[in-house]
Simulated assay, not measured.
Amino acid sequence: MKQLNLVLILFLCIGITKITAQSDTKADVAMIKKNLADSNANMKKYEWIETTKVFVKGEQKSAKQKQCYYAVDGKLTKVDIGGGAEEKKKGGLRGKIIENKKEEMSDYAKKAIAKIQTYLPPSSEKIQKVYGAGKTTVQILEPNTKFKLNFPDYNETGDNLAVAINKPKQKIMAIDVSTAVDDSKEKVVFNITYSDLPDGTQYAATTKLDAPAKDLKIVIENSGFKNAAGK
């Protein structure tokens, strides 16, 4: 009888733990969605500089800057304001081969940057869809403080968007994404580090993409925030 009671107590404790965990995850997802929604709304008050650097085999190949702001229709607008000087083209057959490789890498880099933009800013609706399907998993980074929530198949089958949060501060710390650009077997990963503006608005400060199969690295930094004209 005593053993039966212990078994019942054990099952009861497991049930309570499971309910608590589900409740915590629901609250964390709600916090992430709220922060993203608040950030998306507040960013419309600002304009800033986006700097994109492309590295191949560790060597910087380009650096471009864009002025970013939200237009009257609410769409994010980016205007080129500068870039690195182009390398002098080499002649002959060897030069042609080099130029073809550069063009191929440039096309891939453009596709990779475009792919990043499909995850930024993260969609509250897509996060809710993954959570609602019961796919969300939680990793403990620091007990009672820092956690990582994984949202598999966020944008497409086989990808994963992971959001690292500081629970006591109710803040997003970083977002990691695993996806593919051309070949589904050639995974690319990128990490987005979040920072806060003076009014508490969270934004993607630095995005780093690594494509090991191509020896390619892309770094995107957002800086120079100021109130947009007339806002």
Results as ranks from 00 to 15, higher is better:
Met1Arg: 13
Gln3Lys: 11
Gln3Gly: 04
Gln3Met: 15
Val7Phe: 15
Ile14Arg: 13
Thr20Phe: 14
Thr20Asp: 05
Gln22Trp: 10
Ser23His: 09
Lys33Gly: 01
Ala37Asp: 13
Asn40Leu: 15
Asn40Cys: 07
Lys44Ser: 11
Trp48Ile: 00
Val54Ser: 01
Glu59Leu: 14
Glu59Ile: 07
Gln67Thr: 03
Cys68His: 01
Tyr69Thr: 00
Asp73Cys: 06
Leu76Glu: 00
Val79Glu: 04
Gly84Phe: 12
Ala85Arg: 10
Glu86Tyr: 14
Glu86Thr: 05
Glu87Leu: 11
Glu87Asp: 07
Gly91Glu: 14
Asn100Met: 12
Lys102Ala: 08
Glu103Ile: 10
Tyr108Gln: 02
Tyr108Asp: 03
Lys110Glu: 06
Lys110His: 14
Lys111Met: 10
Gln117Ser: 01
Lys126Asp: 05
Tyr131Thr: 01
Ala133Tyr: 14
Thr137Ser: 05
Ile140His: 12
Leu141Asn: 09
Lys146Glu: 01
Asn150Thr: 04
Pro152Leu: 13
Asn155Gln: 09
Gly158Leu: 15
Asn160Met: 09
Leu161Met: 08
Ala162Trp: 08
Ala164Thr: 03
Ala164Phe: 02
Ile165Gly: 00
Pro168Gln: 04
Lys171Trp: 14
Ile175Met: 04
Val177Ser: 00
Ala180Phe: 15
Lys187Thr: 05
Val188Ile: 06
Val189Cys: 02
Thr193Lys: 06
Leu197Ser: 01
Pro198Gln: 06
Pro198Arg: 05
Gly200Cys: 04
Gly200Ser: 06
Ala204Arg: 02
Ala204Trp: 05
Ala205His: 09
Ala205Gln: 13
Ala213Leu: 14
Asp215Trp: 13
Lys217Cys: 09
Lys217Gln: 13
Ile218Met: 08
Asn222Ser: 08
Gly224Glu: 09
Gly224Val: 11
Ala228Pro: 09
Ala229Leu: 14
